[in-house]
């Protein structure tokens, strides 16, 4: 995987402090929002933990700066209000990043199934997340929760049916993607 190239502002210290002036802050939030989405997409991160030290993007050792908890919450909150992220708990400690919307994940899954002639096949969730078939595709590494929600959208359209396995590892989906 190619190295992630950080934008200019990531090495400019004041961008790690929440700016008090409104216009400047808006610009700052916008830049961080884009960066978080790009970074998560690049590294296939789905869940961001706000607690210190857990998410590498929020600290830049090169310039010895890190985002405060408040700043993290502001930037992620801005994504949440746009529908590009969701808080996973009331305390805003964990955040699900949707750099692709759930319905777009569903579309992606559907077109993957069609392109590979698997319209009638059965796959386990594990296979989709980390199996040979999806290796190298954009589906590889998808978050389990996101995957289940995407499949549920397909279920509503009658394109798929989820079934429970004996163990969680065996949970799977039967496509009927014609």
């Amino acid at each position: 995987m190619a190295d992630f190239s950080f934008p200019y502002f990531y090495n400019y210290p004041p961008y790690f402090t929440l700016q008090p002036v409104r216009d400047t802050r808006e610009k700052q939030v916008e830049l961080w929002k884009q960066l978080i989405l790009k970074y998560c997409k690049h590294h296939k991160y789905f869940v961001v933990d706000l607690e210190e030290g857990d998410f590498p993007l929020f600290a830049n050792a090169n310039i010895d700066r890190k985002l405060t908890y408040e700043a993290r919450e502001v930037f992620l909150g801005a994504l949440v209000s746009e529908g590009k992220a969701e808080w996973m708990d009331k305390g805003h400690r964990r955040c699900l990043i949707l750099w692709r919307r759930i319905q777009d994940w569903a579309e992606l899954l559907l077109s993957f199934v069609r392109e590979n002639g698997m319209e009638d096949s059965v796959m386990t969730l594990e296979e989709i997340m980390s199996g040979d078939e999806t290796r190298g595709s954009e589906l590889a590494g998808i978050d389990r929760g996101v995957l289940i929600r995407a499949i549920k959208i397909l279920e509503q359209k009658g394109k798929a049916a989820m079934f429970k396995g004996q163990a969680t590892d065996d949970d799977g989906v039967k496509f009927s993607a014609h």
């Binding site: 004041p14 961008y15 700016q19 010895d64 700066r65």
Partner: peptide, 22 residues
């Protein structure tokens, strides 16, 4: 700062606020 010419930086370990000028 209000004119948008300076940005504050409170993140330095010495705790002193820095005003940066892009």
């Amino acid at each position: 700062m209000r004119e948008g010419l300076a940005m504050v930086d409170d993140g330095h370990p010495d705790g002193k606020r820095r005003y940066w000028f892009p």
